[in-house]
């Protein structure tokens, strides 16, 4: 049995990390660098190079802020694992909690790596245009395609949430089902490298970007509201069903 520390501080850590991730990533990617929503994969070589030459400074600034923000996903996800491990405590090794934590690392890495690739593209903008385009493509394929880290996180949270038979589960049961649905919603992203122009499965497409990026954000927003509500009510649980 894992005896957890003061729950209240853990819940605060989760809420604050969530806020920092959201503010830094949205600010860095959407506002400052303008990388999100993604540029079309159908851009010509000149257009891509101009993108980097004209926005050199804002791209590097925005990406730096974004990768700093992404790091704060780690405390958030590990707090999740702590609450999940309590559910699993009686089953021996807390497989799903550990799995969720490790997959969070994968998600964070695959979200952070592309920012460095794009930064490298922006680093010496006077270099050969072909190389800039290559780095650009590499970054976007790396950003949009690997979804299994996140999908496994969703599955782990969903499974443990449904296993939680306590009167006050750590997340409401419908949130567990939605977590499973999130994982299912990620199935489109492996199609990204097939489409060089545009369309719903390209890296700026309806399913690869708008659904796969915003559905987890929606889920986390609900979670955040539940947590806030809980802190206000002085609850000790992560969220109350």
């Amino acid at each position: 049995m894992f005896k957890t520390y003061d729950r209240k501080s853990l819940v605060m850590i989760a809420g604050i990390s969530m806020l920092i991730t959201a503010v830094f990533y949205v600010g860095g990617m959407f506002v400052i660098s303008g990388f999100l929503p993604p540029p079309s994969p159908g851009l010509s070589e000149t257009e891509v190079v101009n993108l980097y030459r004209e926005n050199h400074l804002s791209i590097i600034t925005g990406l730096t802020i974004a990768f700093v923000g992404i790091g704060f996903m780690l405390p958030l996800c590990i707090v999740g694992s702590v609450f999940m491990a309590e559910v699993e405590a009686d089953d021996g090794f807390p497989f799903f909690s550990v799995m969720q934590g490790l997959c969070a690392v994968v998600t964070v890495l695959f979200t952070a790596f592309p920012t460095f690739v794009w930064m490298a593209a922006a680093f010496r903008v006077e270099r050969s245009p072909e190389l800039i385009v290559m780095m650009h493509d590499l970054g976007w394929i790396m950003w949009a395609t690997p979804s299994w880290g996140f999908a496994f996180q969703g599955i782990c949270v969903g499974v443990v949430g449904l296993k939680d038979r306590r009167p006050k589960p750590f997340i409401p049961r419908w949130m567990s089902y939605l977590a499973l649905w999130l994982a299912a919603g990620m199935t489109a992203t492996p199609l990204v490298p097939f489409f060089t122009s545009s369309g719903p499965f390209a890296w700026d497409g309806l399913f690869s970007f708008w659904v796969a990026f915003f559905s987890p954000i929606g889920w986390n927003t609900i979670l955040f509201l539940l947590i806030i509500n809980n802190i206000r009510n002085g609850q000790q649980e992560l969220v109350e069903a």
Partner: peptide, 22 residues
């Protein structure tokens, strides 16, 4: 059936609704 199952199914149906639209 739990409401959650229905929510899951409706959410999945909405993704497919987007497929039909596309």
């Amino acid at each position: 059936v739990e409401v959650g199952v229905w929510i899951f199914i409706l959410a999945d149906m909405c993704v497919f609704a987007m497929y039909f639209g596309v």
